[in-house]
Computed example of a mutant assay.
Amino acid sequence: MRAAVGLLAAVAVLTGCTGGLEATPRGEVIPVADREPAPEVGGELVGGGTLDPTATAGVVTVVNFWGSWCGPCRVEVPELQGIADAHPEVAVVGVDLRDQEQFAQAFLDEQGITYPSVHDPSGELAAAFAAWPATQTPSTVVIDADGLVAAAYSGPVTAADLQRALDQLD
């Protein structure tokens, strides 16, 4: 039964069912009093190695769900890389969904992505974010330094949107 519930949650995440939650308006953040704890972000990385969840503890973290097969992801990754380059104090983490690892690695190499990307072919990490509308690829979740979800954006995000959100988290 537990496996079936987990599978249903993963399917909902990967197919776009949000359960009625709405995305945060672009560049806006959720009021502090309304924020909820974020799931831990970690796992096996594309290309090898592991991202330990403690690596993002205590820092603002931008989590982007992407796939090498996703056209809008190709458009937004330079924006995310720009944020990662401009803000070394912010942890930018990609989560590669529904991908074969060799395609994911080729995508990262082709795009020149230097921030870590967790390989999540089964959608397990994405399912942990099912309470927020990170159900579309691409989607981006911003986690504040206290480990609370500060924003969740469905669809491509721009560096300007992220910068406005980050400015509100200072």
Rank of each mutant, 00 (worst) to 15 (best):
F129D: 10
T158A: 10
T50Y: 12
V29R: 07
P121H: 10
Q102L: 14
T15S: 10
S154I: 10
V5Y: 05
T140G: 00
D167N: 09
D85P: 07
P156G: 13
G48W: 12
V149M: 13
G67C: 03
I143G: 05
G123R: 04
R2P: 08
Q163Y: 08
V60N: 05
L8F: 08
A159Y: 01
V77N: 06
E110P: 03
V118W: 05
G43S: 13
V32W: 14
V92L: 06
G155H: 08
V41S: 04
F103G: 14
A4K: 06
L162A: 05
G48M: 09
A127R: 04
G6T: 02
F65I: 00
W132F: 10
V59G: 00
A3Q: 07
S122C: 10
G42N: 12
H87C: 03
C17N: 14
L45K: 08
F103Q: 15
G112H: 09
A106H: 14
D109A: 15
P121D: 11
V93F: 03
P78N: 15
G71I: 09
A128W: 09
D34M: 05
G43K: 10
G48N: 11
L21R: 15
I83C: 08
A38N: 08
V13W: 02
A131Y: 12
S139C: 06
A12P: 03
F129Q: 09
P53S: 07
G16T: 02
S139A: 13
Q102A: 14
R164G: 11
A106L: 12
V60G: 05
G58A: 07
G112S: 11
A152L: 11
A126S: 06
P53W: 10
A91H: 01
L148S: 08
M1S: 03
T18P: 09
T56V: 11
S154N: 09
D34E: 11
L45I: 07
T18M: 12
L51D: 03
D146R: 15
D34H: 02
W69P: 01
A106E: 15
G43R: 11
E110T: 11
T140R: 00
V157L: 10
R164S: 15
A57W: 00
D120L: 00
G71D: 07
F103N: 15
V75P: 08
P72I: 09
L108Y: 07
G155S: 09
D96M: 04
